[in-house]
Design a protein around this nucleic acid. Structure first.
Lengths: 222, 222, 222, 222
DNA sequence: GATGAATGAGCGTTCATTCAT
DNA sequence: GATGAATGAACGCTCATTCAT
C-alpha cells in the first residue's frame, strides 16, 4: 500500500496547521533545497542558503519543519515521488508489454536526465537520514521499482519474455541502468545522447530475456 | 597510463619527508578514515574521530596531510586501488574469456562485499572533492572498468560473445551490477547470498551476449 | 577628502543590514576590543575574550564583522577618529595661531593620556592589517596631522612663527611628541604630570620657530 | 651600571653549557628571528620559520633557549645593543659638543635606516615580554638615551646650548626624531632622503637651544 | 504567521613544546 | 649535541536552532 500524501507530511511536524499553507510554503523551500543539495551536497548547504534561494526567512522554514534533516527527507521524498507520479501514466499509454517496458525506461531515464543532481543526491544522502526515514525512502524506491517489475511480469505472462526470466534481477538491471545515466553522467554525457543511451541499453538488457516472439515485437518498434 | 604510487602521494603534501613514515602513518589513519567515512559519512566524521580511531594525535594527521579533503582523497584512492590491484591477478588465473569474465565479476563483487561502506563512500563523497581530484578518481574508475572491458573484448574476439556485443554498455552493465551489491545492499542482502547474487546476475547479463559456443562454455562451468 | 563614516563601515561587511544595529553592536565589542588589544595585544586577545568583555556571544561578533582583522581595523579607525573629531573643536575656540597650537597640543596629549593603550596599539598593530587597510589608517593619520600643520601654517602666515619654519618637520615633531607621552609612558609618567609634559615640550618645540612677536604672545599665555 | 654580556645571557637558560657554542648558535637563529619578527611580527612568526631561515632544527633552538619569548628577548636586546655599541665610537671621533650631537644623530638615524624593521619591532613587541624583561629593555633604551643626553649636557656646559636647555625633553626630542625615521618610514621615505631628514630635523631641533655661539659652530659645519 | 538577530557547541586547524633516537 | 616526529591545548570561525518582536 503506497504512502498517502497525508502520511508523508505527517512525518514532518509543522508549527503551522493550515494544510494549504504547509503545502505551498514547503514547496517553496524544498524546491530550493533540492537544487542546492543536488549541486553542493546536503552538509555543505546551509539553512541560510536555502532560505535565501527560496526567498523566505530562516524562521519561516523552521515553522514548517523541525530540523535540517526534515528538509532532506522531504527533498528526497519529492524526488522519488516524481518517478512514481510520472512514469505510470506514460506506461499506461503503451499498448503491449514490450512497448511498456520501452516506454517506462525511456520515461525513467528522461526524468533522471532532467534531474541528474537530484538523482545523485538520493544516492549521496539517503544515509544522512535516520534509519526510520531511510527505510521510508527505500520503500518508495521499491514502489517505483514495482512499476518496472510489473511490466516485466506482464511480458513473461504474455510470452514475450522468457518464462525463466529473473524478474527481480532484471528489474534492478533496468533500475541501475537508469540511475547510471545520472551516476555516471561524467562518463556517458560525453559519449552519447540520452536517446542513444536508452536504445543501446534496452537492446542489451532485453536481448537477455526477449523470446523470439518478443524480439519480433521489439524490432518492429520505431 | 596508470598513475604510479609516486604520483598519487605527491598530490598530497606532507610535512614529513621520510617515504616509509609517510606510507605507514597515512595507512594508519586512512584506514580509520575509510571505516568512519564509510559508516557515518565524510562531513559527519571529525578529525578527532579519525585520530582517536587510528590511535594517533590530531597534530600527527596534519603532519602528513594538508587538510581534511586530502584524507578523503587518499581514502577514495585507496578504495579504488584495491579493485585495480586485486582483480587482475584473479582474472589472470582463469583459462578462457568466459571464465575470465566470471572470475572478474566474482572477484569484483566479493571485494565489494567486504567493503560495502567504502564502495558506497565512493558514490557519496566523490563530489566533495575539488574538481581536479574528482577527475583523478574518475580516471581510476576507468582503469578498473578496463579490466572488465578487456575480458569482454577477448570474449568477442574468440567468438564466445556475439560479434555485435556493445562492449561499452556491457562493461557498465557489469560494473553497475557489481556496485549495486553495495548500493542496494539494504535490498539484496536480505534476499540472497553474494554467491547467488553473482550467479543470477551473470546468467542474466551474459545471456544477452553469449554465442551458442559461449553458452556451452558457460554452462560447463562448475 | 576625508573618509565619510559610511565609507568606513562599508569596508567591513556585516550580515546584519540595519545601520543603527550595526552602529550599536559594533560599538559594543569594538570598545571591548580596543581595551583588550591595548592591554594585551591583538594576537594574544581571543575572540572569546572580546565577546566576554563586551557581554555578547561569539556568534554575534561574526554577524557584524567578517574576521578578526576586521575588528582590529575598526578598532584602529575608531582610535584615530577620536583625534580627528575632538581636536578641531578645541582648536576652533582658541583665538590666535599660537594659542591654537598650544590648544591643539594640549588636547592631543590629553586625549592620548586618556587612551595610552589605544595609542600604543596603533603603533603595535597597524602592521597586522593587510596593506590596503594599513594605507587607510595612514591616511587617517595624515588627516589628524593636517590639523596641526594648519595651525603652524597660520602661525607662519601671521608672522608669529618664522617665515622659514619647516612645517612638515615641525608637524611631525609635535605629533611624535604627543605620541611619545603614550609610547614612553613608562618613562614620563614617573617623571612628570601631563601638564608639565605639555608645557615643557611646547616651550622646547616652539622655541625653535617662534618669532619675537610670537614669543610675546606665547609668554603672555596663562 | 650597564648589564654585562654575561648577565644578559644568563637571563636566558641554555641546555648547552659551552659559552662559545651558545654564542654562535644563538647568533645563528637570533639573526633569523630579528629578520622574521621585523618583517612579519612576533606572533605570526613560528619557531619552524625561524629554524628554517636559520638552517637549524627546531630542537636545536630549544637547546639554547627555553621558550619563544626568550627568542624575542634576545632579539630585542641585540637590536638595542647595536645602538649602544655603534654610536659612542662615532661620537668620540667628533671634536666639539655640537659636532658630537650632529654625529650622534647622524649615526643613530643611519643605523635605524639600516634596521627599520628591527626598530619598529622594538616598538611593536616589547609589550610581549614579561614585565621583568620589559624593564631590562627599557633600561637598555635609557642607556642609549644617555649617549645623546651626555652630548647635550656637554653642549650646555660649554655654552653652545642655552643654560636653561631642558635636557630630558631635548633628549627625547632627538630620540623620537630618530625613531620616527623608522616608525613613519611609510611617510618620510617618499618625501626625502635620510640625509635630508637628518639635516632638516637637526636644524629644527637645535634651533630651539643653540646659543649664538652654538649657532655659529653649527652653521660652520659642512 | 513571518522575521532575522542572537546564541554557543563544536568544527578544522595551528604551533609551541617535548623527547626518543 | 642535534634532529624532527609527535602531541594536544587552544584558536578562529560556522551554522543549526531559538525566540522576541
Amino acid at each position: 500500500m503506497p504512502l498517502s500524501k497525508k502520511n508523508k507530511s505527517a512525518l514532518v511536524k509543522s508549527k503551522v496547521d493550515v494544510p494549504q499553507l504547509i503545502e505551498r510554503r514547503r514547496a517553496q523551500f524544498i524546491d530550493a533545497a533540492i537544487e542546492l543539495f543536488g549541486q553542493r551536497g546536503y552538509h555543505v548547504t546551509t539553512i541560510r542558503d536555502i532560505a535565501q534561494a527560496a526567498g523566505v526567512s530562516i524562521g519561516l522554514i523552521y515553522q514548517y519543519v523541525e530540523d535540517k534533516e526534515d528538509i532532506l527527507f522531504l527533498a528526497l521524498m519529492q524526488v522519488l515521488d516524481q518517478y512514481i507520479n510520472e512514469i505510470p501514466p506514460i506506461v499506461a499509454q503503451a499498448k503491449g508489454p514490450v512497448q511498456k517496458i520501452v516506454a517506462a525506461v525511456n520515461a525513467y531515464v528522461l526524468i533522471i536526465d532532467g534531474n541528474v543532481n537530484a538523482t545523485v543526491l538520493a544516492y549521496r544522502e539517503t544515509k544522512s537520514l535516520r534509519k526510520e526515514r531511510r527505510v521510508l525512502i527505500q520503500q518508495k524506491e521499491l514502489e517505483s521499482n514495482a512499476i518496472i517489475a510489473n511490466c516485466i511480469q506482464e511480458g513473461v505472462a504474455t510470452g514475450l519474455l522468457g518464462p525463466d526470466t529473473d524478474i527481480e534481477m532484471m528489474t534492478y538491471q533496468i533500475v541501475m541502468f537508469s540511475h547510471a545515466w545520472a551516476l555516471k553522467a561524467w562518463r556517458f554525457r560525453s559519449l552519447m545522447s540520452v536517446q542513444e543511451y536508452v536504445d543501446r541499453g534496452l537492446r542489451l538488457i532485453l536481448a537477455a530475456t526477449l523470446t523470439t516472439k518478443g524480439k519480433r515485437v521489439f524490432n518492429a518498434m520505431p
